[in-house]
């Protein structure tokens, strides 16, 4: 697992992708921080984080698109899948490498909190709540992207597919609201990622929320393993 993680991390920073992702993170979060907080003298960071939610929805797939798609294309999956390594470890290694890069981009959000605390009194519960929420949603996006990347040989298809999947995950509430059958709508809205996300941003730390996000991540990693297994059996 560590071998794969190390290789992937070094691959991120040998190509521009790692730097581009972090730069985009810094650029957008900096802009949102200035626009929604600094320029109007507000300590309410909800919009800063909300903006980043959408940025990550679109940019995390850039990070995850090559994870498996490239292996499939270059046939290097033959090396990984014939090595004496369990599939779950392989998937976990891939996930962790992308998540590390994601967190390098995300961590700057805490610095904005520190900056603000010099200028005004800030509500750390809200900032930390938002930060944890964004970190958790990032894990969901990374695992979803990894899953889609496993399905294809094309990085482009992987990227577009993951953006679509991320959007669908984020819009579950809307989808639920247009389903006429109440029972089904109820079940679907229980899966609503955004509702859980929103709970955190109000500064309420809920263990069930953390477990929910981790479960979603585990489900996607499990699905990824299944796809790799299925190819073996096809």
């Amino acid at each position: 697992m560590t071998a794969i993680m190390k290789r992937e991390l070094s691959a991120y920073f040998k190509s521009p992708i790692g730097y581009v992702f972090i730069a985009v993170s810094f650029l957008f979060s900096g802009f949102f921080f200035w626009y929604f907080a600094l320029s109007i003298g507000s300590t309410d960071v909800s919009f800063v984080f909300l903006g980043m939610f959408y940025v990550y929805m679109i940019f995390v797939p850039v990070l995850t698109m090559r994870l498996m798609a490239d292996e499939n294309k270059q046939r290097t999956d033959q090396l990984l899948l014939t090595a004496p390594v369990g599939l779950m470890r392989l998937v976990a290694g891939k996930f962790l490498s992308a998540y590390c890069v994601f967190m390098l981009g995300d961590i700057v959000m805490l610095i904005y909190g520190v900056v603000m605390s010099f200028l005004a009194t800030v509500n750390w519960a809200i900032i930390l709540g938002n930060f944890v929420a964004l970190a958790l949603i990032g894990a969901v996006f990374v695992s979803a992207g990894l899953f889609v990347s496993t399905l294809t040989e094309s990085q482009m298809v992987a990227a577009i597919g993951s953006i679509a999947l991320n959007a669908a995950l984020s819009l579950i509430t809307v989808i639920a609201s247009i389903i006429p059958v109440q029972a089904i709508a109820d079940i679907i809205s229980k899966l609503a990622v955004f509702d859980r996300y929103y709970e955190f941003t109000t500064g309420i730390f809920s263990l069930s929320g953390v477990i929910f996000f981790i479960s979603v991540v585990v489900v996607f990693m499990f699905l990824t393993v299944r796809v790799l297994e299925r190819r073996r059996w096809a």
């Binding site: 290789r7 070094s10 270059q74 046939r75 004496p84």
Partner: peptide, 23 residues
């Protein structure tokens, strides 16, 4: 395999030590 499973962005040394730890 028929097509050697190589990572083109690595040097030979890096690649072999990756395989070393992978195995």
């Amino acid at each position: 395999p028929e097509q050697p499973p190589l990572y083109f962005d690595m040097t030979v040394d890096e690649y072999l030590s990756f395989v070393y730890s992978l195995k």
